[in-house]
Simulated assay, not measured.
Amino acid sequence: MINIEKKPKVLVIGDLMIDSYLIGSCDRIATDAPIPVVDIKEEKSVLGGAGNVIRNLASLGAKVSVMSVVGNDDNAKLLKHLLDEIQTKSFLIEQKGRKTSKKTRIMAGISQVFRFDHESKNNISFDNVKSLYSKLVEKIKAYDVILLADYGKGVLTKDFTQKIISYANKNSVKTIVDPYGSDYSKYKGATLIIPNKEEAQAVTKIEISNDDKLLDALKVIKKDFETEYAIITLAEEGIAVLKENKLSVMPTVPLEVYDVTGSGDTVLASIGYALSLNNSIYDSVEFANLATGVVLRKTGTATVSIEEIQSDQVYLDRKLIEKNLACKVK
């Protein structure tokens, strides 16, 4: 396990959302159209997008702050309430005419039947970029790490993202990015960018078909975007890490997957949490694998706690001991 002697101070900047769930049962097809009819029994709303990163950090015990832009609407009011519930320090700007992002999922049991989105995707205004950056300059010394949660909804513009990374580097504050799109030049100079395999292939133009290609892709990411570390997430295969120009694939935890929703948010939160406490990249990735293993066994945008991760670590250690003993008996 990683060093968790203190509670890190983490700033999250990015696209906040509400994940809304309409949950019920489905046992018939509509008579007026060939579509399932879900009898809704429960409705709930939780923080999504950058908000789910925040939820995971809070669950891990971090002291979390957030900077973002939302709309002037009822969804913004709900979002602020949800942030207050988990004691998040918020600097949110309301932009007139902007829609606060909300994703509504229709669930039949644990299965998603349908989803509809209510959101704006245009870049935030220049004045709001200026206001957010001024707040960052004012508060930079208060944070151990900055997490950039980019979902392509317009908060992390290219100019703003580069300003964040540049100013953080000047003040020796780590920046860790969950990227969006194929233009990673906006993230140049970050401590770490966390692409998945498909994203890494798109940005490096390398088809990752074997370990040699995987190593090449990691090297390109580190060199071209001037990151301190390079990793690529590989779904059920784990996370690939580049260190000293060598490849290491940290395997994921054996588990039964119920829902992959929000798993990338958990990776960003857990690696950010671990690195903010000055753990090694290897220990941080191992921690993230354990954290993600817990979340994938839950439905919807879920969170993970230190206690759950420690429980999984004990289980894995016991299995490793049993395996070694079995080998010795043979």
Rank of each mutant, 00 (worst) to 15 (best):
K7A: 15
K9Y: 05
K9G: 04
V10D: 14
M17Y: 03
S20R: 15
S20P: 00
Y21I: 11
V37I: 13
V37P: 13
K41A: 08
E43C: 00
G48F: 04
V53Y: 02
M67D: 10
M67C: 09
K77H: 02
L79V: 00
L79D: 03
L83K: 01
D84M: 11
E85V: 07
Q87N: 15
F91I: 15
R98S: 03
R105L: 03
G109L: 09
F114C: 10
F116M: 12
F116C: 13
D117Q: 04
K121G: 05
N122Q: 13
N122F: 08
S125E: 13
N128S: 13
S131V: 10
Y133H: 14
E138I: 05
Y151C: 08
G152F: 05
K153M: 12
Q162V: 01
K163R: 12
S172V: 02
V173S: 03
K174G: 04
Y184P: 14
L192M: 06
N196L: 11
E199Q: 13
A202D: 15
E207W: 00
E207I: 11
D212Q: 12
L215D: 10
L215C: 07
D216K: 07
K219D: 14
K222S: 12
E226D: 12
E236Y: 03
E236M: 09
K243S: 12
E244M: 04
K246G: 01
L247C: 10
T252L: 07
G262T: 02
G262Y: 07
G264S: 12
V267L: 14
L268N: 06
L275W: 00
S276T: 01
S276M: 02
S280M: 10
D283F: 04
S284W: 07
E286F: 03
G293F: 03
G300M: 10
Q310E: 15
S311N: 14
I321Y: 07
A326P: 00
